[in-house]
Nucleic acid binder design. Structure first.
Lengths: 237, 237
DNA sequence: CCAAAAGTGTTGTCCCTACACCCATGC
DNA sequence: GCATGGGTGTAGGGACAACACTTTTGG
């Protein structure tokens, strides 16, 4: 804290969301089309300025996530990711953006936007292609979010947050394969994830929605850290 | 970003530092005594308000670290940790603090403070005791910093940042033992850390400063991620 | 010679990869 | 029966914990 006596400069605080889901075989991020300048017409992360003197950052993020997706905190994972404050990132003035990362399941109902313009799910891979442009520094934020997601599912059970309330082992494995972009051995995955205590709770039900032999259905268990960790397939070190 | 037309509320941004080092056999954090209200006379993390319209957050953190310790970025590790913005955390008004985590070696020369009042190294354990009070929510921030440090040295080579430029394997091991608060097997540690490619570079020199058989001296190598990871001794899962 | 600290060997266990193989459904 | 996907078995290798042991200094 400064001990100087000159006035304290103020800046605007934005709370932005990188909302990720897995749908249609790819990792996708929620983007809204900007209705005003700057970057009018370009896509951006949903978010807003911190507008209530009494609202916590985490609360603001949760409120905005609910506005965009209709989901509350029981159903999603929401965590603070990083704060971006490079001068010039917003041409209107000094804006510091506190960014949150959310994992949500593939919504069967279309997300009714709050005050958002047209909201759309866009594959992360598409967003990160060289030709794609987003408003502000949001492309870089998406890159950070994807990297964080890839890393987090290694040692936590957060991959289950991309699944519906009840899911099969194969569905969970597909989440891993899609987020990492690499195939996993179905048999070793099954043994490992079902062998980890407290991660999966069998419902006793079965489903044949994927064809073939019926698969057991599971719910996410109480454990949040994955031990032993689920390691990505060997890369060059 | 808000698409509303009412004025954008502004708040003050503080950039605060949790500077950690290992000295006198304990993990310690740099605290300064506050010269003004609020919490005049209490200890707080060093930091200051973002005071230059053209200064990046990372740059501001690096500048403040240099002011407090005299060290530049070549010698330390500095990373953004988390942003704290709970209403009421500063009685003067809405202040959002972007907190950075720094790892620095035990300075042989006393840190000449910039505009800081009396600066002091305080063992983290002392800070986190129930009876200790810090200004603002800085006690919680110290707790987050310690936990982050304990976790980071598992899978990165950042423990070397707590060591002088040249150090022995035993000195590095003591860093781990102090940060984790648990003893490690000297023999397994030696094998593992010297076996990891690119982590340690032998200088060819030896030292007997710890008594006994001379130990080889090393410098930190180019690799930043530790593979395989250095795992903490087994806790109850 | 003895204490102290550095560094090497060994052994059993766990986990991981890689496969082969059987099971239960729809058609 | 046959295709499709679910679930189990097994063998080899790497990493790890827990040890004993040798090496090299100072006193």
């Amino acid at each position: 804290m400064s001990d100087r006596t000159r006035p304290i400069p103020t800046v605007a605080i934005a709370v932005d969301l990188a909302v990720l889901t897995v749908r249609d075989g790819s990792l996708q991020v929620l983007l809204v089309e900007r209705g005003i300048e700057p970057w009018r017409g370009l896509q951006a992360l949903p978010g807003g300025f911190l507008d209530d003197e009494e609202e916590d950052l985490d609360t603001a993020a949760a409120r905005e996530l609910a506005e965009e997706t209709g989901l509350d905190l029981d159903q999603v994972h929401l965590e603070q990711m990083r704060t971006y404050g490079t001068p010039g990132r917003d041409p209107r003035g000094r804006v510091v953006a506190v960014c949150y990362l959310a994992f949500i399941p593939d919504l069967p109902s279309p997300h009714a936007g709050g005050d958002a313009q047209a909201a759309a799910w866009v594959p992360a891979q598409t967003v990160l292609e060289p030709g794609t442009r987003l408003a502000f520094d949001h492309k870089r934020i998406v890159a950070d979010a994807v990297e964080r997601a890839r890393s987090k599912i290694e040692y936590t059970t957060l991959a289950t947050r991309f699944c519906p309330p009840e899911f099969t082992v194969a569905e969970l494995r597909q989440v891993y394969e899609i987020v990492w972009g690499e195939p996993l051995d179905q048999r070793n995955f099954h043994r490992k994830i079902t062998g980890a205590e407290g991660v999966l709770v069998p419902t006793g039900e079965q489903t044949t929605r994927q064809g073939g032999r019926p698969a057991g259905l599971f719910r996410a268990g109480p454990v949040t850290t994955l031990h032993p960790a689920m390691l990505r397939p060997t890369r060059a070190w």
